[in-house]
């Protein structure tokens, strides 16, 4: 996503990027990034909490547009409401649905049918 942010910004449209992966964002260096400490798939908040999501998005945009130093990552003072230690297994074979060769990982969740 950082490459896309750079491409858009270079064309004259300002960008604000969310991130929960500080190290990747630091490497790719988009123009303005806002860090929210959350598991992948929750960059704009926990499921089923629309008020939390709206407030988070508002705070992220406000923080993002206040960045003046190109490449800055601004950390939001907000915590994902899950203190179960999800960080330990984030992005490990147990935690993602498919392996890179397309085979479902053990215990992989299936997309629910509508």
């Amino acid at each position: 996503m950082g490459l896309i942010a750079r491409e858009i910004e270079a064309a004259g449209l300002p960008t604000v990027s969310m991130t929960s992966a500080w190290d990747i964002t630091e490497a790719v260096a988009p123009p303005r990034a806002v860090y929210f400490h959350a598991p992948l798939g929750h960059q704009t908040g926990p499921a089923g909490e629309p008020d939390t999501q709206r407030d988070l998005v508002a705070r992220a945009l406000e923080a993002g547009v206040s960045i003046e130093q190109p490449g800055e990552i601004r950390a939001l003072d907000l915590r994902f409401p899950d203190a179960t230690g999800w960080e330990a297994t984030a992005y490990t074979p147990e935690a993602i649905p498919m392996s890179p060769d397309g085979k479902p990982n053990r215990g992989a969740p299936r997309e629910p049918r509508a």
């Binding site: 598991p39 992948l40 798939g41 929750h42 960059q43 704009t44 908040g45 926990p46 499921a47 089923g48 629309p50 999501q53 709206r54 988070l56 998005v57 508002a58 945009l61 935690a95 993602i96 649905p97 498919m98 397309g102 969740p109 997309e111 629910p112």
Partner: peptide, 27 residues
């Protein structure tokens, strides 16, 4: 939601986790 690279259960239940259209509309 279809994605191979993250646990999509929450996003499938509430796409606002990754596509905040509802939040933007409210703002």
């Amino acid at each position: 939601v279809s994605h191979f690279g993250y646990d999509i259960r929450d996003a499938a239940r509430d796409p606002g986790c990754v596509l905040p259209l509802r939040a933007l509309r409210e703002l």
